[in-house]
Amino acid sequence: MVHYTIDPGEIAAFERFAREWMRLVAAHGGVHHGYFLPAEGASDKAEALFSFESLAAYERYRARFGSDPEFIAADRIRDDSGCVVRYERTFMRPLLPGQ
């Protein structure tokens, strides 16, 4: 899970950033469960939820950061627009119905 503090004036840029990361997660072995954007209440918080089949699969995905041109371009949306003020990653495991 990624917790974002965003610039509400740059929501369109954040949506471009989010769409690109949803595509990249899916293209590199993960399942993106979506971004959750402000609707009512606090207007500067957003969340993203995605999963990989294993820590090893996630680490292969993360190894592309800073070197893969598509990953760099996706981060450039964030950096150039300033749409993300800060973010924090939290690693969680699901507890699903029937488990």
Rank of each mutant, 00 (worst) to 15 (best):
L96R: 04
L55R: 12
R19N: 12
F71P: 08
G29M: 01
T5H: 11
D79H: 09
Q99K: 13
L95I: 12
Y35L: 05
V2P: 03
D80H: 10
Q99L: 08
H32R: 07
P94L: 09
V25S: 10
E70I: 02
E88K: 14
A46T: 09
A39P: 00
A39F: 09
G29Q: 08
S43P: 10
P97L: 04
R64H: 07
H32S: 09
E53R: 15
A26F: 04
V25Y: 09
L55D: 05
L95C: 03
G41W: 14
T90P: 00
F50Y: 04
E10S: 14
R62Q: 14
E88V: 15
M1G: 15
D79L: 15
E20Q: 10
D79P: 00
F17Q: 02
A56D: 07
F36R: 15
S43E: 06
A63M: 00
E88A: 02
S51Y: 02
G98V: 03
S81T: 10
E59Y: 00
V84P: 06
D7A: 09
D80Y: 03
R86Y: 03
M1K: 08
E59S: 05
V31E: 13
S67D: 00
A13K: 13
A12M: 07
D80E: 14
R86N: 09
R19P: 01
R16Q: 11
E40I: 14
E88H: 11
H33L: 15
P97F: 00
S67N: 12
M22L: 14
V31Y: 08
A57G: 09
H33Y: 12
R93W: 08
T5R: 00
S54P: 04
G98F: 06
W21M: 11
H3C: 11
Y35D: 05
L24D: 01
D79T: 01
Y35Q: 12
I72V: 13
A46S: 02
R60F: 03
H33I: 08
H3K: 13
A13V: 04
R16F: 00
Q99S: 14
R23G: 07
Y4K: 05
R19S: 15
R16K: 10
A39Q: 09
G34F: 07
F91H: 08
P38E: 12
F91R: 05
V2H: 05
S81P: 01
F52R: 11
